[in-house]
């Protein structure tokens, strides 16, 4: 069980944001595009210059080596990127069970990434993010490009990971139904501030 704590986090027009997400709970963030949701997630993963700090229990971003910090706060971008030819080359830990829960057969490891659809890449990206065993999750519209069947598959898989590992989650979503299904707390990003709904 770990707790994610944003301490006066500020990036350009976004923030300062103070927020605590406890382990095993999902905090949803919605808001117009350009309101700063993605920027906030990127700053938590220390991908952008920012003021303030983020802590995972006792460990804080500003005093942790960046690669280690980023492995622990799994940031899933809205669009995942792939640079090797095959799927498996992008994974250090190939978990067949997780793969099948995501609706893929074992031969998927040998697929050529450029042949995958946007939705397939999205689901594989989620697997790749989880295979790092992050202690917190920062998800930027993880189901945006998926059909209803896969949306519920992905939700289930992530909820299971969250429950089993008691990780805190910040989940950016545009879908009111999804937010109702999964969110413990729901904030709307407005003028760079988080407003509780």
């Amino acid at each position: 069980m770990s707790q994610l704590e944003l301490k006066a986090l500020q990036i350009r027009h976004v923030g300062p944001v103070d927020l605590t997400v406890s382990g095993g709970t999902i905090t949803c963030v919605s808001g117009e595009s350009g309101s700063g949701k993605s920027i906030l997630l990127r700053a938590i993963a220390d991908m952008l210059p920012h003021a303030g700090d983020v802590c995972l229990d006792e460990q804080c971003a500003n005093t942790t080596s960046p690669p280690l910090w980023r492995r622990q706060v799994g940031l899933l971008p809205a669009e995942t990127e792939w640079w090797y030819e095959t799927v498996e080359e992008h994974f250090t830990d190939k978990d067949d069970e997780l793969l099948s829960k995501m609706g893929f057969a074992a031969k998927t490891w040998h697929w050529t990434v450029s042949d995958c659809s946007t939705g397939e890449r999205q689901r594989l990206g989620i697997l790749r993010c989880l295979s790092n065993k992050p202690r917190a999750l920062l998800l930027d519209e993880p189901t945006a490009s998926l059909d209803p069947e896969n949306i519920s598959r992905v939700e289930q898989l992530i909820l299971e990971y969250v429950k089993n590992n008691k990780v805190p989650v910040i989940w950016v979503s545009h879908s009111r139904e999804q937010i109702q299904r999964i969110a413990g707390v729901h904030y709307k990003m407005k003028d760079g501030k988080l407003v509780k709904q």
């Binding site: 991908m47 980023r70 971008p77 995942t80 990127e81 640079w83 993010c129 790092n132």
Partner: peptide, 21 residues
């Protein structure tokens, strides 16, 4: 390739590895 480099950083690669190609 900024998106790829940043994706590699997000996954926990150090800067040298993320941009090596």
């Amino acid at each position: 390739q900024r998106d790829i480099i940043e994706q590699r950083l997000m996954l926990g690669q150090d800067w040298r590895t993320a941009i090596c190609d």
